[in-house]
């Protein structure tokens, strides 16, 4: 990480260290603070909360802009360094800037080394099987991750997973970040405490605080696509083709860069060959019998 501002460099280095992301060496963020005009994207081709994505200045690669305060990042195609320019206003909102904007920059940068982002929680059950719990917000990923951690499973993340093709397996890397629960999830888990996550309306719990163990790496044997159901948890096996279209949906970056799209798609396809995939309706019975998930897929 390069940055001319010593205080900002220290803060960003602490943020990156805290992620504990075992990324390949050679990647870098080159961060500068500028009062100059940071132009927004004339036309975004992809958006997520707070962040817009468009083609880079050379027509290839990616330019990202932040909605909350002026900030621009360029990640050229095949480059190992992301050039980031932050306004002083963006620096004043550094927690939000790292969580949304700079995390998106990291996601784009990691694509250059074959790490592909997927919205998923990750876990390893007591028998050693790797799990991915995949889907958008409000499908129960975080509550499930917290429940599994509280049941002694190893848990990696409740949302940001990075798929990598590693020899004969697809493995999933994760950041060390608190499991972010809304009030509803906390009530279901009957959990007090935790750390208030600013600006998110959520409370964070580390897997270790819940009785679990954080794991940075999972080799998935089972992928589930949950929805929040009623009383009883159910699981329905999925055809590989259906699982792949769902994975594309929750790994939407696959659409972003033509040069990387086929490799990204191939990784998702191999995941459907490696893991058994299920649609799962999460019921309240899981809170008394979390390992029912294992029974349902065995």
């Amino acid at each position: 990480m390069q940055c001319d501002d010593p205080a900002l460099r220290t803060a960003l280095a602490a943020w990156l260290d805290g992620l504990r992301l075992a990324a390949p060496s050679g990647l870098a963020l080159d961060v500068a603070v500028t009062d100059g005009d940071l132009e927004s994207l004339p036309k975004a081709v992809f958006e997520q909360p707070d962040v817009r994505f468009g083609p880079g200045p050379d027509g290839r690669g990616i330019r990202l802009t932040w909605d909350h305060a002026p900030a621009v990042a360029d990640v050229p195609a095949a480059a190992s360094v992301a050039m980031v320019r932050l306004s002083p206003d963006a620096v004043r909102h550094l927690e939000r800037c790292t969580r949304t904007f700079l995390m998106a920059v990291v996601i784009v940068l990691l694509r250059r080394v074959g790490w592909y982002h997927l919205h998923a929680a990750t876990a390893i059950d007591p028998s050693g099987q790797g799990w991915l719990v995949t889907g958008n917000a409000h499908v129960g990923k975080s509550t499930t991750a917290a429940l599994l951690a509280a049941s002694g499973w190893q848990v990696g993340t409740d949302d940001a997973a990075f798929l990598e093709s590693a020899q004969d397996r697809i493995v999933v890397h994760t950041c060390h970040a608190p499991i972010a629960l809304r009030d509803g999830g906390r009530r279901l888990l009957a959990r007090a405490g935790g750390v208030v996550l600013p600006n998110r309306g959520k409370v964070g719990f580390w897997p270790e605080d819940l009785g679990g163990v954080w794991t940075p790496l999972v080799s998935p044997d089972i992928v589930i696509f949950p929805t929040v159901g009623k009383a009883r948890t159910t699981a329905e096996p999925m055809a590989r083709k259906d699982a792949l279209t769902e994975l594309v949906r929750w790994s939407a970056w696959v659409m972003l860069e033509p040069d990387l799209a086929q490799d990204h798609l191939d990784v998702l396809t191999r995941l459907t060959a490696q893991a058994r995939c299920f649609r799962v309706s999460l019921g309240r019975d899981l809170f008394t019998r979390p390992n029912r998930l294992i029974e349902l897929v065995s």
């Binding site: 083709k241 792949l244 594309v248 799209a261 798609l265």
Partner: peptide
């Protein structure tokens, strides 16, 4: 993507 003979197209 070729998935057991069937395809997924982006």
């Amino acid at each position: 993507a070729d998935v057991e003979g069937d395809g997924v197209v982006l």
